[in-house]
């Protein structure tokens, strides 16, 4: 047991929808505070069982860039993405996101700046209603009920799911659940969005809608995917990851045209 923090931010009924408290000063609800950059240097990561998942990665991504991470299963893509949000910490090397080095001192802000959208929306959605789920992040951040309400509304509108607010996440289609999962992180106002296999399990229409949605986002975007057409359609830059290291980094069109490279890394 470490030091006990004082009880903070107790908002009775904080997560209750439609409790409009419009007396607060409006912030622009979805304007990120951070600068959206990512800088990774000499990143090494070893799992507790000894598996060396990342072996020295260097990477710089500018604000607003849209980058696809390509690579075979087990290449280290997911491990890398979990570093961006501080869920994994480097064994060696550093990770900077939105101008902050990921550490115990910054972890609370890092999680607000970097939104992780997991592959299986069921891992992410656990509340009785869509509204409650989207309100989780803002409520945890201790925002006022009015601010929470605004954030949830704007985030749901951004993914076109405002009409689903009172539905149970479990009862939605896979495409709807994926959109709601995105809304749950959008509501935290991140400057960087990280997606794991966003097109997995979607039918062609769901996939087209996803691509349109991704194209409409202004945040820095990082996507791990096996879906090369998705990378081509929405991500100008691609990074090929294999065996815990970066194998190629360049314009998506050039990388996808290099058949030898794709074959060498299990992408074709």
């Amino acid at each position: 047991m470490k030091e006990q923090h004082e009880h903070l931010h107790t908002h009775p009924g904080a997560a209750v929808p439609h409790s409009h408290g419009h007396d607060h000063a409006h912030e622009a609800p979805l304007m990120p505070a951070g600068d959206g950059t990512i800088a990774i240097s000499h990143l090494h990561f070893r799992y507790p069982d000894g598996t060396e998942a990342l072996r020295g990665m260097d990477l710089a991504i500018a604000a607003g860039e849209k980058v696809a991470l390509l690579g075979p299963n087990g290449a280290g893509k997911s491990t890398l993405m979990l570093h961006l949000n501080g869920i994994h910490r480097p064994t060696h090397g550093t990770v900077h996101v939105a101008g902050m080095q990921v550490s115990n001192e910054t972890i609370g802000r890092v999680r607000a700046e970097v939104g992780l959208v997991f592959q299986d929306p069921d891992d992410q959605l656990f509340s009785p209603t869509v509204w409650d789920d989207v309100a989780f992040g803002p409520t945890h951040m201790g925002l006022t009920p009015g601010a929470i309400h605004d954030r949830v509304e704007v985030a749901l509108a951004a993914v076109g799911a405002l009409d689903l607010a009172q539905r149970a996440p479990m009862r939605l289609s896979i495409g709807q659940r994926k959109r709601v999962a995105l809304a749950t992180v959008l509501a935290m106002n991140p400057s960087i969005l990280v997606f794991d296999e966003p097109s997995a399990g979607l039918d062609p229409r769901g996939r087209r809608e996803l691509i349109e949605l991704l194209q409409s986002l202004t945040q820095t975007l990082i996507v791990s995917t096996h879906d090369l057409e998705l990378a081509r359609a929405a991500f100008p830059r691609s990074i090929v990851v294999d065996r815990g290291a970066i194998a190629a980094d360049g314009a998506t069109d050039e990388i996808l045209a290099n058949r030898e490279l794709l074959l060498a890394h299990g992408l074709a």
Binding site: H5, L8, H9, A33, N85, I87, M100, N104, E105, T106, I107, G108, R109, V110, R111, A112, G115, L116, F118, Q124, F136, G137, T139, H140, M141, G142, L143, T184, V185, M188
Partner: peptide, 15 residues
């Protein structure tokens, strides 16, 4: 991943 701290607060806190 969604358990962030209030804006301007760095350390991990529970909300």
């Amino acid at each position: 991943a969604r358990s962030a701290s209030p804006v301007g607060d760095g350390r991990e806190r529970i909300g």
